[in-house]
Amino acid sequence: MSERILEVSGLSVEIPVPSGLLHPVQDVSFHVDRGETLAIVGESGCGKSLTSLALMDLLPPKARRQARKLELEGRDLTSLGERQMSDLRGDRMSMIFQEPMTSLNPAYTIGDQLIEAMRRHRGVSVAEARDRAVWLLEKVGITAARGRLGQYPHQLSGGLRQRVMIAMALMCGPDLIIADEPTTALDVTIQAQILHLLADLQREFQTGLILITHDLGVVARVADRVAVMYAGQIVEEGSARDIFQAPTHPYTQGLLDCIPIPGKTARGAHLGSIPGIVPSLVGEMQGCHFADRCRHARGLCRAGAIGLREGAGQSHRYRCIQSLAEAAAHLIREPEAVG
């Protein structure tokens, strides 16, 4: 029995905007076990980053968070005040951000920024914290680590900075790491390195990892489980295998159609695309969020809220009224239609 690290149930985020109430995250539920990687996938604006910020309680000031259940290692996060929350942040749960170029403070050395969290949470001496920082910098593949402590962010490349960010997240040995598009801002050659590094470290330290990305290629390589988000909702969740082998929700299927597979996708063939744009999330929304872009949409799709149903795989869920048989039929038909 694996150890449950994070349990999220019914998480919603609301932001008041001039034209009404924005619902960027709606009734999101998922969990992460120790040593497990959960990928949250979706296009920009689907609420995946806000979901992660909501977990850390780092939402913008105007945003409101609601959740039926938000537990980190059995501790209820919804009842914690700002002070108690900051005791957990950077200690039990830490975050790696998308922009390594701007996520480090330009005015301080990386050594200084590395040891901060450990000094705050563990009250260790500077020397002790620096020793751990050096050890972790070596772990994330930075050479001459001790010398790097005195360097400033602008003296490091983007890839190096992201490695520093990863080392920083690991300083207190957290139970959960949230990586919000950690490779998006990096060169393609560096992306794979950083990803492998994250996966290796996660295995070594046995932390839970939430990997937020829009890149399904990234997901395929490292995720144990995948949650696909669309317009503020999780539309499909399951093991990586289920999601890639038997995608059930039309949106997931559409996403997968968009990726060329070397050796399988014929040269010169049209890649799939999903027509239309993401709906506005201001105000209440009736029915399926994806209905306007879905080619299987029927009247029933817009009639009322669509719940999650059990999918084919184990703990596989999808938010659609079409049956598994219909989804499977689409999967078989699709390659011919594309070719």
């Binding site: 701007t102 996520s103 901060e116």
Partner: peptide
């Protein structure tokens, strides 16, 4: 700025 969010994510006071 992003680095302020980073600082907060570290749980600094």
């Amino acid at each position: 700025a992003d680095y302020i969010r980073t600082a907060r994510a570290k749980g600094l006071r």
